[in-house]
């Protein structure tokens, strides 16, 4: 009985081993070594994912693994060389703890960021000064700004989020904000603003749908057109960083994303603004230069 059982187990193990060996022999060799991983910014994730899918469709056997995790994770992973590409909403120079001299920046898209408020507030435009005073807590009711009589509820993105950094730098001009509610994702922020009376927050253009009211700043409307001419200043680049010059699959994938094929289709369909549309360029320090 006991011996038979042992024999049975042995046979089973041999069978499993044989099967594994056989499948190892017959594995698909063409795809070996053909995959890279990109990690980071959740705002850039949809674009990289969609582009990665198309890229694999065009290059059989090559896979692009796209992970979120936030810009901080993306930059620290690329700095350690643990992944092929690190995605970030902010310049590596702006992120503390990153020594950027080894990292090579690839700007693949631009996103505009817009303040959004609950639809029932009844306001459509605000000035920079008003925005500053809303976010630092000077105003507490929309009545003071000519809106309905509802208290203001501020919803911030998490500390360190790229969207928040861009909004505070360009819409609030670095004005210090009051500590308030925080949420760590655009989807959550949008659903809170759409359901909470008197709520105000900010999201990328692609997330601002009909459930919330987009706010114009100083009379400038939040349109792609205005971003390309820098009339609407609240925008940021989406960066894909590599550690040193990109090689192999990473290089061809970055070329693919920067190619007109993707820039004029996917990038626009997903609500980003393509780099080639921009009439201006902005550097880390915020200096704007006109292109061509």
């Amino acid at each position: 009985m006991n011996k038979r059982r042992i024999a049975g187990v042995a046979l089973f193990l041999i069978a499993i081993g044989g099967l594994l060996g056989l499948s190892y022999q017959t594995r698909n060799r063409s795809s070996a070594g053909g995959s890279i991983t990109t990690v980071g910014s959740t705002a850039l994730q949809p674009l990289v994912e969609a582009a990665g899918e198309q890229f694999s469709g065009d290059h059989l056997g090559v896979f692009i693994n796209v992970q979120g995790g936030g810009s901080g994770t993306g930059l620290s992973q690329i700095q350690e060389g643990a992944v092929a590409i690190g995605n970030s909403d902010v310049f590596a120079e702006e992120q503390s703890g990153i020594h950027s001299h080894n990292l090579v920046d690839h700007r693949v898209a631009v996103v505009g960021i817009v303040p959004i408020i609950n639809k029932k507030v009844g306001l459509k435009t605000l000035t920079t000064a008003q925005l500053q005073k809303v976010f630092d807590g000077t105003y507490t009711n929309w009545r003071e700004l000519g809106g309905k009589n509802v208290p203001i509820t501020i919803v911030n993105r998490a500390q360190g989020s790229g969207t928040r950094a861009t909004f505070e730098k360009w819409a609030l001009r670095g004005h210090r904000v009051k500590t308030a509610q925080e949420q760590d994702s655009s989807g959550m922020v949008r659903s809170i603003v759409s359901t909470t009376p008197g709520a105000i927050s900010y999201v990328a253009f692609s997330y601002a749908n009909k459930t919330v009211q987009k706010v114009a700043i100083n009379g400038v409307a939040p349109t792609n057109q205005n971003v390309t001419s820098n009339k609407w200043q609240v925008w940021s680049y989406e960066h894909m960083y590599t550690n040193g010059r990109p090689k192999g699959v990473a290089k061809s994938f970055l070329n693919y994303i920067e190619s007109p094929k993707i820039q004029s289709t996917l990038v626009r369909q997903l609500g980003y603004i393509s780099i080639s549309q921009m009439h201006v360029e902005r550097d880390v320090k915020g200096r704007v230069t006109v292109v061509r």
Partner: peptide, 11 residues
């Protein structure tokens, strides 16, 4: 909320 937005090893 914060862990994804910070860099490993920074304060």
């Amino acid at each position: 909320e914060g862990i994804g937005n910070t860099v490993m090893g920074s304060l």
